[in-house]
Design a protein around this nucleic acid. Structure first.
Lengths: 194, 194, 194, 194
DNA sequence: CATGAATGAGATTTCATTCAT
DNA sequence: TATGAATGAAATCTCATTCAT
């Protein structure tokens, strides 16, 4: 079934193009024509692979998240990783993660008013949350401590700190090189005794 | 004699309407007609007071910020306020601050691609930062401790935590009642020894 | 009846302002607000003195013509004027006549599609034509020659030459100083034996 | 395979429609919708081929000029043409040239206030001027006379006469049949000894 | 499958005109 | 009289979507 492979590949190409264009221009200014141009195809072609523009955009959001989770999973599978190694993957320290986080933010405000996007956002947060929680539990096991009772709120605190750092880093890129981002995250985790 | 109209008041009315509409519908879906309708006037009347739509939107952003800073200043002027009392003003715990923070987020992603909005965002952050820093210094004076050397990064950490909590609270309002928001902020400040 | 005098003066002020604005910005770009601003009044005031915008514009056209005819009449009343002295008044050699002719041209293309303006244009041409014809007859009397039979066509030829020079002079002002305009007109009249 | 459309032809069709509409209604009253209607398409289709309305209008002006120059070139290439035959092409003696000259006049007043149109107008005059000059030189060669020293001013005189006749002919069409236009032009050239 | 021309709804902006004061 | 705020019609431009080829 070569067609299906092509189909998937095509969708991926388009979604990837959408990610780049959104990160570059923002969600509002992203035209189907721009995405088509970036992907080296026409708008008509895109509608062959996606029902409509919104579907393309959602695919882009999905892809941005997948980038981040893939990175986290990769680190997670290494034998000697620390908790810090995991969560640092969410920070916009590489070009790739900067792009991914910019897309995430582009969709964030939309999620506040569009139920469909909101659902997606919530579901993804749950995915992130359980990942962080799992790794946190593993951490406590490694250091042979019992996990705190309010572990969910600890995770939310971590999440808040990470999201907050992302926001600042994207806004004032020059002031937030990788080292500073890492330093503040580390400071926070140290406070938590992690 | 001409019909007497308070220009400033009129502009405020329009900006306020814009704030409400943006918080309700998001930035992209906000039409001039919606704002006009909300303010009880016509689009022509709005362009009488603002050069164009962008000017109205920026006025709305300004107003949202002003709400927050006004609250902070009010608390700040009370004789026995704590540092916590100040920063908690930024959290979306009242209807008013929820609206203000929703507007802020609506503009955030735009600030990543539009230089003009970016400038505004950066300037406002600076305003926030210096306010937080000032109150932090006062705090250390009150408890007769010397302020840490990396006080700017401490402020950034606080900012990150607050921003992160805002993001989460807006997304899943039901899960984030005032008490939970307050609790997590307090936890963080306690970790910092504040 | 001081009111009436004021009324007339007011209309004149407005029409004069309109002339300046039209010459400056062109007919299309001339807004009632601009005219009002130039005249130091408001749009509401203008509608007190003119039924609508078109009336203001027509008054401006009228005024532009009056300037030219007034100049012609003044020269005409001098005892020792030549035919050349008369027609040279139509050329845009002074700031005033430049303005007047620019206004005339601004209305010209409108006269091709709007019957009302067309009528005005035709009537004014007739006024010009009879003036030129009269002066031409006087000229022939002075030099004791009989006027040519096709005197109307001679006048039209003169008119064409003058109009053509106006067009060129307005377009490329720098290349058409007063001397050049005068020279070409004189050359033409000399050809005609005038 | 895509719908095959000749881009150039399409642009020509639109420009031609614009020419007709402008000649009919004047420049100010020409709406994109009118042009679209005349061309049998929608406004959206037009902006597919032209960046904006101004681009359409300029194309129309260009086309009007091209009509005239094409006629001049055609006559010019005939073996036994006279100088008169050339310049008479500029007069509005046919429906086609009437239209072209009306469009030219429609843009004339705009050229007095819009630099872009002015440039175009000046460039086109230069084209016309050199054409006339060239033909005049040829004429003198044919009749074995030396060209006058002030040949440029002779050309300007001819231009003025032609332009002046155009103005009058367009304004009072009924009074200016082809024969009268030709007669006055011929009279003028005869005066010049051409 | 793919193209890209064409549509047409929708949004902003402009301004002459009106009218309450 | 005069003001200038407000209206609202009109026009342009944008762009997702459709569809003939």
């Amino acid at each position: 079934m070569p067609k299906i492979v092509n189909h998937k590949k095509r969708r991926t190409t388009i979604a990837q193009a959408a990610v780049e264009v959104i990160a570059e221009q923002g969600l509002e200014s992203t035209k189907l024509l721009d995405i088509a141009g970036f992907a080296g195809m026409t708008t008509g072609a895109i509608t062959h692979y996606f029902s409509d523009k919104d579907a393309v955009l959602m695919a882009a959001l999905e892809m941005a998240y997948d980038m981040m989770f893939a990175n986290m999973d990769q680190v997670s599978s290494a034998s000697d990783h620390t908790f810090y190694d995991i969560v640092v993957q969410a920070l916009p320290i590489t070009q790739e993660s900067r792009t991914a986080m910019t897309v995430w933010m582009a969709f964030y405000s939309r999620s506040l008013v569009e139920p469909e996007v909101s659902c997606h956002q919530i579901a993804t947060h749950a995915r992130w949350h359980s990942k962080v929680k799992l790794e946190l539990v593993r951490h406590y096991q490694r250091v042979e401590m019992s996990a705190p009772e309010d572990i969910d709120d600890v995770c939310e605190g971590i999440t808040a700190q990470v999201n907050g750092l992302i926001i600042r880093s994207l806004t004032e890129e020059a002031d937030w090189p990788e080292t500073r981002q890492r330093k503040l995250l580390k400071t926070y985790l140290t406070l938590l005794g992690i």
